[in-house]
Simulated assay, not measured.
Amino acid sequence: MNPIEPLVFLVDDDFSVREGLTSLVRSVGLRVEAFASAQEFLDFARPDAPTCLVLDVRMPGLSGLDLQRMLLDAKDRIPVIFITGHGDIPMTVRAMKAGALEFLPKPFREEDLLSAIREALAHNFITRQQQAERGELEHRYATLTAREREVMPLIVRGMLNKQVAADFGIAEVTIKVHRHNIMQKMKARSLPELVRMVEKLQSGVSSEGKDSAI
Rank of each mutant, 00 (worst) to 15 (best):
L71N: 09
V151T: 06
G209K: 04
L113C: 01
G158W: 03
M91Q: 15
R140Q: 15
G99W: 09
L53K: 10
L194M: 02
A45S: 15
V156P: 02
D211I: 12
R134S: 14
N124P: 04
V57C: 10
A74P: 04
E119H: 08
V57G: 05
K162R: 14
L160V: 07
K200G: 09
P153C: 00
R189T: 15
V11S: 01
A132W: 07
G99N: 11
Q39F: 12
L160R: 12
L42G: 12
H178M: 04
P192V: 13
I175N: 05
P50R: 02
A34R: 01
T143C: 05
A95D: 08
M59Q: 10
I155A: 10
L72M: 08
L7N: 06
F108Y: 05
F15Q: 14
R140W: 14
A100F: 02
D88M: 05
V8H: 02
I89A: 13
R77P: 08
S27H: 00
P105G: 04
S190E: 03
D13V: 02
T174I: 06
E19D: 13
I4V: 13
V25W: 01
E208G: 12
L55E: 06
A95I: 08
A188D: 01
L101Y: 11
I4K: 10
P6F: 03
S203V: 08
F35A: 02
